Amino acid sequence: MTLIDAAAQSKTMAKAWGDLVDGYRRRELWWHLGWQDIKQRYRRSVLGPFWITIATGTTAVAMGGLYSKLFHLQLSVHLPYVTLGLIIWNLINASILEGAEVFVANEGLIKQLPTPLSVHVYRLVWRQMILFGHNIVIYLIIAIIYPKSWSWADLSVIPALGLIVLNCVWVSLCFGILATRYRDIGPLLFSVVQLLFFMTPIIWNDETLRQQGAGPWAKIVELNPLLHYLDIVRAPLLGAHQELRHWAVVTALTIVGWVMAAVAMRQYRARVAYWV
Rank of each mutant, 00 (worst) to 15 (best):
A8R: 15
M13W: 09
M13S: 10
A14S: 14
A16R: 01
G18R: 09
G18K: 11
L29W: 15
W30T: 02
W31Y: 13
K39G: 04
R41K: 15
V46W: 11
L47A: 15
I54Q: 12
V61P: 01
A62G: 10
M63C: 12
G65S: 10
L73M: 14
V82W: 00
N93Q: 13
A94C: 10
S95P: 07
L97K: 06
G99M: 03
E107Q: 11
E107I: 04
K111L: 15
L113N: 14
S118D: 05
S118Y: 07
Y122L: 08
I130L: 09
F132D: 05
I141F: 11
S151M: 06
A153I: 09
A153V: 09
D154S: 07
G162Q: 01
I164A: 15
N167M: 15
V169H: 07
S172P: 10
C174K: 03
F175P: 04
A179Y: 15
P187L: 13
L188E: 02
S191P: 02
L196E: 06
M199R: 02
M199L: 15
T200F: 04
I202S: 01
T208S: 11
G213V: 08
A214Q: 04
P216K: 01
E222I: 03
L223Q: 08
L226W: 02
Y229V: 13
A235I: 05
H241Y: 14
H246A: 03
W247M: 12
A248E: 10
T251Q: 11
T254I: 09
T254Q: 07
T254M: 13
W258P: 12
M260R: 08
A261I: 14
V263D: 03
Y268M: 07
Y268H: 12
R269G: 00
R269C: 00
A273I: 10
W275S: 07
W275R: 14
